[in-house]
Design a protein around this nucleic acid. Structure first.
Lengths: 336, 336
DNA sequence: CTGAAAGCGCTAACAG
DNA sequence: CTGTTAGCGCTTTCAG
């Protein structure tokens, strides 16, 4: 591994000058710049980020915190896409991304300790609900951070417009003539779930549609099984009392469709269903749903974090919201 | 940020001794060890991986290379799960994971340069087909690596038993009485696709089933749309010439089911279909398919890489294979 | 069993 | 515009 000293020796300049050349330091003769770059290339010199980080105290690394609880980690398509988008945007700005867990080397070290150990310049958090105490220490610290899906007070976060999205879903159903709309809501400790449910409630009020508590079932986990159980319960309790279901998560919506079909209902002829998220399987299932713009969420979150890490003026509100949109497929139909 | 010198000063020992304590160096008095750990905790000392890496020339970082071509990057559920598994196992062994791309800071740097810049101890590659020239430099270098899905000669790789998996799928169909089985094969530059197709061919021969080239269609991309087109073509060309379809990728299988149903066929009554991979939507679609053990693939790949990075004797073959299994759901039925 | 000293590769004043 | 010097935080011989 060639070092800056090798380049210095080979080019006839000092290490300091070579360093300046590589950091596009302003005051440097074009000739010497060319010469240095040329010989650097010849001897195959690559700067060493470790040494650089040690002196500058900037690692150009951002730590990724994904909560694996609630089936909501990096392998979840939703978070995977957000991550992918963020990673690309961070990369363009010169940042690499390192995964931070709380069990480095089998030892139990805190997320904050892990971040300090790696010297990350900032942290990207993603979780559908709070990580709990585990990350509170980093939220309370002065580490630059951005959170996706879950907003922390005084910290920057970026989320979808869940409330408006729910309105969109409901409006679609209403425009098709539905008036008795059931809801599969999520665990209310998830802000996204709570906001969607609130959208459901408020839409009902806004349109003078009677709110029937018996038409609401809560799924407690983000799994298909939970959605399946939820509709089963709904049907057993409120059979024939609703013509449509607003499921606040695609997995539940898909599971609901399966349950309904297995139990003699036609979807959408007998019952319409709309989901939320627009995950991969929504397309295969022909599910009408609300799409989250994951690409944009990742991108904006990256920008928000970059701005902080570079001490730029942030022209973002703390709670950035990204619009959602209705994707019409074939799980809803009009009412005669 | 407290340094090792602070701990030294506060505890009354030298930095060297503190360092030894933190690296569980054998010859050290228990009392001094305790004293050092104690004061370290008091002043909130966290070792600095950067400084450590600079002297030891070990970063305890593994570089992740995901090819975003062919819709096959980290956001693909298959790779996301493999990554997740690998990440956890690597973490237990003390390694953190950093994403490596070829465009750090907007500049075009090669994967190899990026690896050297970050000083990774090893590389984890994942791509359904070759990355092409882009990673050849790292394959040709002496960087420790493991590849998933795509085997490089002389390098370690871990893949599913695609060939056997295809046999499993075919055997299932055969046991149900099917004799005229069509195949949606994949792009043959993907080793996994090629192996699955070979399994199909060989199964036919082995069971004296006539091979009809007209019953094979090739999907060129790993997208639902491509699968849809493929079955459409199959049906137009070989209508009523087959009773079952072996689709070598779940997305194609799901798309095929959708196409068939939209065109008046009943699945599984008229036509049975079996997929490959067992991705999330396979469950929702009730697809009978071949499951890849992603958890295990990631875990073994991690072990193979760790062994190399720690210069341990590798008791792995270069081409590690992980068994697949049949998951029976509701997309196949027996023939009268 | 503990400490002194040197050095990993680079950057940041400060001189020249 | 270029070079000298010191030092980032840690580990590692080598003495003691």
């Amino acid at each position: 591994m060639a070092t800056i000293y090798d380049v210095a020796a080979a080019s006839g300049f000092s290490p300091a000058t070579v360093s300046k050349a590589f950091n596009s330091y302003p005051g440097i003769n074009q000739k010497t710049f060319d010469k240095i770059m040329q010989t650097a290339k010849e001897i195959g010199y690559i700067p060493n980020s470790t040494a650089r980080a040690l002196t500058t105290k900037k690692s150009w690394l951002v730590g990724m915190l994904f909560s694996e609880e609630l089936f909501t980690g990096i392998k979840h398509p939703h978070f995977g896409e957000i991550f992918s988008s963020a990673q690309i945007h961070l990369g363009k700005a010169g940042y690499d991304v390192v995964f931070i867990n709380n069990a480095l080397g089998g030892e139990n070290i805190s997320y904050l300790e892990h971040c300090r150990y790696r010297g990350v310049d900032g942290v990207f958090m993603a979780a559908s609900a709070s990580f709990g105490k585990a990350v509170q220490c980093i939220v309370d610290s002065d580490v630059k951070m951005v959170s996706v899906e879950f907003p922390y007070p005084q910290k920057y976060s970026v989320l979808s417009e869940n409330y408006n999205g729910a309105m969109l879903a409901m409006e679609h159903l209403r425009s098709l003539g539905h008036r008795k709309i059931a809801c599969i809501s999520g665990p209310l400790f998830s802000p996204a779930a709570a906001e969607r449910y609130q959208g459901y409630r408020d839409f009902l009020s806004a349109h003078a549609m009677h709110f029937n508590p018996g038409l609401v079932v809560e799924a407690t986990e983000f799994t298909a099984a939970d959605g399946y159980d939820a509709v089963a319960k709904l049907v057993s309790v409120a059979k024939d009392k609703f013509t449509a279901i607003f499921a606040t998560y695609d997995d539940w919506a898909c599971a609901a469709i399966n349950y309904l079909r297995e139990n003699g209902y036609k979807v959408p002829e007998d019952i319409s269903v709309v989901g939320f998220d627009d995950l991969v399987h929504a397309e295969f299932a022909g599910l009408t749903t609300i799409r989250q713009d994951r690409e944009k969420i990742g991108c904006i979150a990256a920008d928000v974090l970059i701005a902080q890490m570079q001490d730029m003026a942030l022209d973002f509100p703390h709670d950035v919201r990204v619009p959602t949109s209705l994707v019409v497929r074939s799980s809803c139909s009009g009412i005669a």
